[in-house]
Amino acid sequence: MTPQPAPGGFGNILRGMLLLGRGRLTGLVYFGNTADAVLTALAPRIALWLVGGLLTMAHAPDATSATRWLFSLCMILLPAIVTHALAQRWGRSALWCRYIAAAWWTDWLSPFVMLGVALLMALGAPALLETTYGGLIINGVGFAYSLWMTWFIARVGLALGGGRAMLLVGAVLLSLTLLAGITALLPPHYMPWHDFMALPGASSAPHH
């Protein structure tokens, strides 16, 4: 029998990320199925949230910045809450720790995918990179990749069929959409989709 890799350790986590990021379900075994594995995956996200939020508040200490900071925390935690509830409902609670650890770690791949698209655009169509359309393309590819990863890791991590994995993706998206709608309706009326549209070239006028 081929020995199974021991989960944990940054090297194994990186291997698991790269395998899952390419659609290889064997990458799942590199992640632990324990509470410690979940906390280890969560820690860098919370650290980045704290640093980014403090820098934002130092630069613009207003209600919108505070709302953006809290919303970004909900972006991290709300999918975990939703998927945990679904895992319990579907009898997959025993698999959830490994699933969410893998999901949180592989989520770091999306910015690199976006960077790759931006580099290709800079080489092949540099003028497009400076336009709103360029920003939409980069963000759209990153968003599509993130959706696919969410579906794939739910399918393999929670041992779901394709339909249930799609339902999980839809539930996560719906919860985040509702949260975004609430933040837009209530003061200070922060609209999260403006941040999505603004990266990285949306501030420039389209070139004709």
Rank of each mutant, 00 (worst) to 15 (best):
T2D: 07
A6I: 15
P7H: 06
P7K: 07
G8H: 10
G9H: 02
G9T: 09
R15A: 10
G16P: 09
G16L: 15
M17V: 13
L20Q: 08
L25R: 14
T26M: 14
G27S: 06
V29W: 05
Y30S: 06
Y30A: 05
F31D: 04
T34P: 05
A37Q: 06
A41I: 14
A41M: 09
W49V: 10
W49P: 00
L54D: 00
T56F: 07
M57H: 02
A60I: 00
P61N: 03
D62N: 11
D62V: 07
A63I: 05
T64V: 10
T64F: 03
A66Y: 01
R68W: 10
L70W: 12
C74N: 05
C74Y: 10
C74S: 11
I76L: 12
L77H: 01
L78T: 07
P79F: 01
V82G: 03
A85G: 09
A87C: 09
G91F: 02
R92H: 12
S93Y: 03
A94I: 15
A94L: 14
L95E: 12
C97F: 15
C97W: 11
C97K: 13
C97S: 13
I100K: 06
A102F: 14
A103P: 01
W104L: 15
W104K: 07
T106C: 15
T106A: 11
T106W: 11
L109R: 03
L109C: 06
S110W: 14
P111I: 14
P111Q: 08
F112T: 07
M114G: 07
M114W: 02
V117Y: 01
L119I: 08
L120T: 00
L120R: 00
M121Y: 02
L123V: 04
L123W: 11
G124R: 04
A125Y: 01
P126M: 04
A127I: 01
L128K: 05
T131I: 08
T131F: 08
T132H: 13
G134D: 03
L136R: 08
L136D: 00
L136Y: 07
I137H: 01
N139T: 14
N139I: 14
V141Q: 05
V141E: 02
A144M: 12
Y145A: 07
S146F: 13
L147K: 03
M149T: 08
M149V: 11
T150A: 09
W151A: 02
I153E: 06
I153P: 04
A154W: 12
G157P: 06
A159P: 03
A159L: 15
L160E: 10
G162A: 15
G162E: 08
L167G: 05
L167I: 14
L173M: 14
L174Y: 09
L174D: 03
S175T: 10
L176K: 04
T177P: 00
L178K: 06
L179V: 11
T183P: 02
P192C: 12
W193Y: 11
H194T: 13
H194Q: 13
D195C: 10
F196L: 15
L199Q: 01
P200D: 02
P200T: 03
P200I: 10
S203W: 12
A205L: 14
P206N: 15
H207G: 08
